[in-house]
Design a protein around this nucleic acid. Structure first.
Lengths: 181, 181, 181, 181
DNA sequence: TATGAATGAGAATTCATTCAT
DNA sequence: GATGAATGAATTCTCATTCAT
């Protein structure tokens, strides 16, 4: 993760990963099928864990607003203090066309659906405004989260940290989706 | 742009670009210094144009809300009907670590600053809520725009098209940044 | 051919072939798909040519004995003076399992069949003895040719050269297949 | 032997041999110095045994014709029922340039010499025709034996089996070397 | 200006071999 | 003696780039 975050996927040599791990080049291949598999493994261990964590957390929250708040808090909270992970998630993973097409796309899609479902529920209960398509709102929320995490990871946005950013985004999103009075 | 959008930056061979352009491999190098320069050129001709277009448009709009509305409309409007461009902007450009670090980062930064400035002005005039950091809001807005354009480019979001998405996002953002009544 | 004959297929590096050919490593791959393809090409240009040459020559010979004589003369005659080729044909080609299984086996089989057919015709006409199975005779003849060519190629058998060996083998084979008086 | 026969020398992994033997990879190296040594060992245990067996058998036969008959019977007889061995002897051994050049060549040479000696003796006693060089005859006989064993091993020649082939080859060879009446 | 054949540096991956346990 | 995880040297092939024509 550290090496990938530093240099990007394609610019990283397998030998550099091996060196950083303190093993020989060949040893990498005892545990990972290929260079791509290294990224897949990062994805599985870190990103997928985030997704499943969300899935188990959401049912515990009462109301759509609370759920959306939780989504934002969790996604940014888990990256807080892990700049490398944040960079991998927001930048590096997307550099492997193979990973994206074969592996990440469906998970990503499912994640967006989950958020959209929360929005739809909130609309049904009258808690959220009706005039916004749930899927569009989901994409906007995800994009905002992603943009914030990315700029933070790339070091352009140190003021405040992700926890603070999280609170601000919750404000914007919840107001933005509030039903008109 | 078409070839890059289809296969991604690294998987695209210079010879494929040459073939698509109907010229010989070597001819590419009469007009572009390197493969990376092809991307840089795309960036300059398309993305930079968007940025400077924005810069000239914004002063014509009255009020922060109208300016933000215009930002959203322009960014999504220019991509509407140009799926390849949308994919290049939201996905492909980021695959070249070199381009991102050496070239795009400052422009991107300037763009975020421009949006942040609009927000700050709106706050100063009382048009927008005060309790959100302009830079954070800018990143959230940009992220939302980016997320919407990306899902659209990747074909996961056909319902409505970008013009429609644009209207919806304006709603969310302006409500989200509205001062409490 | 020269490099392969000298070092064997697996011990030969593609870079050595390139060097011997006076070109860069990569240039090899403009003309041959892979290292195996180099061998396939040798096979096609040289061995296959021998086979088709035989096919066109045989009908011109009168009688089975003359045909067998011609087979022997041609096979050894074409290798005379081409030690490298002889080594490639008798030794090197067989080192690439891929070439043998996917490419050479059927040609080899067809060649044996052609010889067997000549024997069978000779038996039908009473020119050759009846008590030997044509296919077995074909395999024995081919083996003898191959063994002679191989020992010559490997430098263990210089006395006389292949032309001389050819005459001797013709004697043995024709007497060996002569009908009992 | 089984694994080598199945996949060829170079395509066989040491780990595959270990697995087939039911031991760990490293264990192989307690008994064999290298992968090549595995082949050398096969050669020593099987091929060399054949050669020494021949050496002890020949003196018991009366006359050159009987001796040649015995050579043929033994060489093919020992392979009968041992397809894997036949394939190793006729195909696999030759894939290791190292084995061939450093190890097998002298034994092979000695074997050819032994056969040539039998022929020479037969010529001296008037039992065999004089107009064929003993070494050439030896190479032809060996080649025929080899070709028959190989085609049988590769599965292209099932009709009759090696015992039957043996009888047929004896016929051809002895007639072929018979003095003119 | 355009061409495209040639270049050759570079990198992922394999696998025979070792050796601490 | 046996193990098998670790090693790292070695090699094929790719492809951005050049330059003589």
């Amino acid at each position: 993760m550290r090496v990938f975050a530093r240099k990007g996927f394609h610019a990283t040599r397998v030998s550099e990963v091996a060196k950083a791990a303190g093993v020989a080049d060949g040893t990498i291949y005892l545990y990972f099928k290929s260079k791509d598999a290294l990224l897949v493994s990062l994805f599985e261990h870190r990103v997928e864990r985030l997704l499943s964590f969300l899935e188990s957390e959401l049912p515990r929250c009462e109301g759509a607003a609370n759920k959306l708040k939780r989504v934002i808090e969790i996604q940014l909270g888990l990256l807080e203090g892990e700049r490398d992970l944040a960079e991998v998630v927001t930048v590096i993973l997307r550099q492997s066309t193979k990973l994206m097409k074969e592996y990440a796309a469906p998970k990503f899609s499912a994640y967006l659906d989950a958020i959209a479902r929360v929005v739809a529920e909130g609309q049904a209960s009258g808690e959220l405004r009706q005039d916004v398509a749930p899927h569009l709102a989901a994409r906007a929320i995800f994009g905002a989260l992603d943009g914030i995490a990315m700029t933070w990871a790339l070091g352009k946005a140190d003021r405040g940290g992700l926890a603070w950013a999280s609170g601000q985004l919750v404000e914007i999103v919840l107001h933005g989706l509030q039903p008109p009075r």
